[in-house]
Design a protein around this nucleic acid. Structure first.
Lengths: 95, 95
DNA sequence: AGCATAGTTCAAATGTTTTTGAACTATGCT
DNA sequence: AGCATAGTTCAAAAACATTTGAACTATGCT
């Protein structure tokens, strides 16, 4: 029983989420750091407004590309590498 | 000197091209066959109108995801697997 | 020449995504 | 309580993508 936790997201949502320069910049940033950061930290680092940030984080989350972890006021995000593995690295197997 | 021939396309174009159900269906179909087919053959197999087909093949071509080979009236298409390798399989390396 | 077939182009309509500021909720701090 | 900070929601505008039919080009066939 080697089942992954792919809940909800589908390849269209994943590719749509990847098809935007701001979201790709967020992904690059989170990949470099390789640990949880707050949305505000990312917003400032990439000079995205908070409204825009909120919008893009929601799309990344719904695609299953990030995990989200809320601690009091702050929302911490990190890459969910299993989704990248599933849809990108193992693209042909899951097509 | 192990340079690939990625001429023009970029990751945004590639992910946009992948972010559509019709284009994903075309890719699945071309993957299954694994040889050149005419656009008309694909259009009929997937029951896409020719106008719509023409539009989607152009997007796939501009993304570098298909190769195109014109023989008299017909346009033959096949997957360009090197582009999938570059942007999907080796996603993290090329991010 | 005349007709058929493969695919493209155009333009209008429709649908979807992205941006932005203002108002909002929720939490923490003094 | 009063104020600040983190993030969300809303709504309108702007930008972009998709669909469709009709007209078109280019080629092949008889």
């Amino acid at each position: 029983m080697t089942e992954q936790t792919h809940t909800g997201e589908n390849s269209i949502d994943v590719f749509k989420a990847l098809a935007d320069p701001i979201r790709l910049a967020i992904i690059r940033y989170l990949d470099k750091l390789d640990h949880e950061v707050s949305c505000g930290t990312v917003d400032q680092a990439l000079r995205i407004g908070k409204t825009s940030g909120s919008y893009h984080f929601k799309i990344l989350q719904e695609a299953g590309l990030i995990t989200v972890h809320k601690v009091s006021r702050e929302k911490f995000v990190a890459l969910d590498r299993s989704t990248f593995d599933h849809y990108l690295i193992h693209f042909w197997q899951n097509l």
